[in-house]
Amino acid sequence: MTINARVLGIAEQWIGTPYRHQGSAIGVGCDCLGLVRGIWRGLYGREPELVPAYAADWAERSGEERLLEAAARHFRPVASFRQSLPGDLVIFRFRPGCAAKHAGILARNRPSTAVGECGPDRGGTDESDTGELCPGESGPGEGAEDEGVQGHPAAVPDHFIHAYEQSAVTRSTLVPAWRRRIAGLYRFPEV
């Protein structure tokens, strides 16, 4: 099994875990960083590094690219969205001039009626293909442009799994508004 398939398998087990700032416990609570840390522990049996306590507005206050710097220390960079695969780490920047502060795992759509999945009639928050985000997400984005898709359409990520603030870990559609906010793409290292 590839590393990306293993990452996706672990990430999908976290769907429905309630959102909890600084949390990283499957079924109990996590934030976006806690989700990534939990997947890392599931793959490698340990934390990637010690994470100090952080405030919800840490990125706005520090101005440092802490999330991107940590990703560069532990993951392999993916050069472009065209080269990304389901199971890759995606990092988002919500506003130009602010540090990147949200992370998720690229995924493919899977038909589902499970609670915690964004989309009409799926029990989660609705996202349309018009580029609108789920309610509660805001801010103009800056980041990688959607470079189009080449290669195998079945492998192209069109969703992502993330800890959705004030809700739970969910699968969301990677609409253009999210794609414009991509600040970095990374692959988990081989085990």
Rank of each mutant, 00 (worst) to 15 (best):
A72S: 13
R73G: 09
H74E: 02
F75G: 01
F75P: 00
F75C: 04
R76P: 01
R76H: 12
F81H: 03
F81A: 08
R82A: 15
L85Q: 08
P86Y: 01
P86S: 11
V90P: 00
I91S: 03
I91P: 00
F92M: 10
F92R: 02
R93T: 03
R93D: 02
F94L: 09
R95S: 12
P96A: 10
P96L: 02
G97I: 00
C98T: 03
C98K: 07
C98D: 10
C98W: 06
A100D: 00
K101D: 14
H102C: 01
A103Q: 13
G104W: 00
I105V: 15
R108N: 15
R110D: 09
R110C: 10
S112N: 08
A114Y: 02
G116E: 09
G116H: 07
C118D: 15
P120I: 13
G123I: 08
G123S: 04
E127H: 11
S128G: 15
D129K: 04
E132W: 05
L133H: 10
L133G: 06
L133K: 05
P135W: 11
S138I: 07
G139C: 03
G139R: 02
G139P: 02
P140F: 07
P140M: 11
E142P: 01
E142Y: 03
G143K: 00
A144D: 06
E145G: 14
E147K: 00
G148V: 03
G148N: 01
V149D: 13
G151F: 03
G151P: 06
H152L: 12
H152N: 14
A154L: 11
A155F: 10
V156I: 13
P157G: 04
F160G: 10
A163C: 11
A163N: 08
A163Q: 11
Y164L: 10
E165M: 15
E165R: 10
E165T: 15
Q166T: 11
S167Y: 11
S167N: 09
R171A: 12
S172L: 08
S172N: 08
T173Q: 14
V175E: 10
P176H: 06
P176D: 09
A177C: 07
